[in-house]
Amino acid sequence: MSVSTLSLSVWWARLGQARRRTFLGYLFLSPWLVGLLAFTLFPILAVFGLGFMEYGIFGRPTWIGLQNYRDILTNDRLFLTTLGNTLYFVALSVPLSTVIGFLLAVALNTRLIGQTLFRTAFYVPSIVPQVAAVLLFVWLFHPQIGLINFALDLLGLEGPNWLGRPQWAKPAIVIMGLWGVGGGMIIYLAGLQSIPQHLYEAAEIDGATEMRRFLMITIPLMTPTLFYNLIIGIIGSFQVFVTAYVATQGGPLNSTLFYVLYLYRYGFEEFRLGYASALAWILFLLVLALTVVVFRSSSSWVYYESGGER
């Protein structure tokens, strides 16, 4: 046994059981910690710093203070457009995916024939690669040979040029986003199944109708899950990118130019990474602010069963 191995063994023996456990704990945590530091925290801080610089990826960054932020807020003709597009998407996509995901989960939590098949069928789309799904939707939305307009035609309605007209392109992107609603549905389903059955039984004995049980037991006990999905949904919706990048490239007439797509253009098409970094931080602050507001509001509508805290 070498001297270094021996001294390591002595050191290990002298640590004591409690400290050995602590050390091992940190050792097991370290891959994650290193990943967090190197691939999340460091980029976040680097992007914050780059927001104050002129940086074109190939050269050295130069300090320009708040110039990027000034330009964004005063000079950038598309900043408000992209922000508006993104808020439109968030405002439509989050409530729709929440309601649809939740109702699907409720429906699939009841005893019905082929329950597992339905659960799988609704969940699978959420794990289909997004690009493949978007390409499929481009076909479905085709104004002449697409299935969506074909279905509208059967109902006697004239389908629009979904992705070719500014007023229809955003709703089309929202509909594409609903394709992945099964991901949220699975979380709701898990939440529904964790509601204690005895609550329903007690309510039933007391004569509560099914609707009353849904409103007074299911909904309140599902609020933590709804809250979680809401936060994740808001953060994810602000980052909408792939659908617009693949289906419309931000058009027509910038109607689907969402914030992150705009940021991407600056960073990787115009190579203005400093400017793109400033845009990223503005988005981060907006999402943070909205998340804080939702968190604050949660005390008035999220019910945590343990301890009865509201």
Partner: peptide
């Protein structure tokens, strides 16, 4: 027209 030509080209692409 713009819409028709776009739809035709997209359809042929598909």
């Amino acid at each position: 027209g713009w819409d028709s030509v776009g739809a035709a080209l997209e359809g042929w692409g598909n």
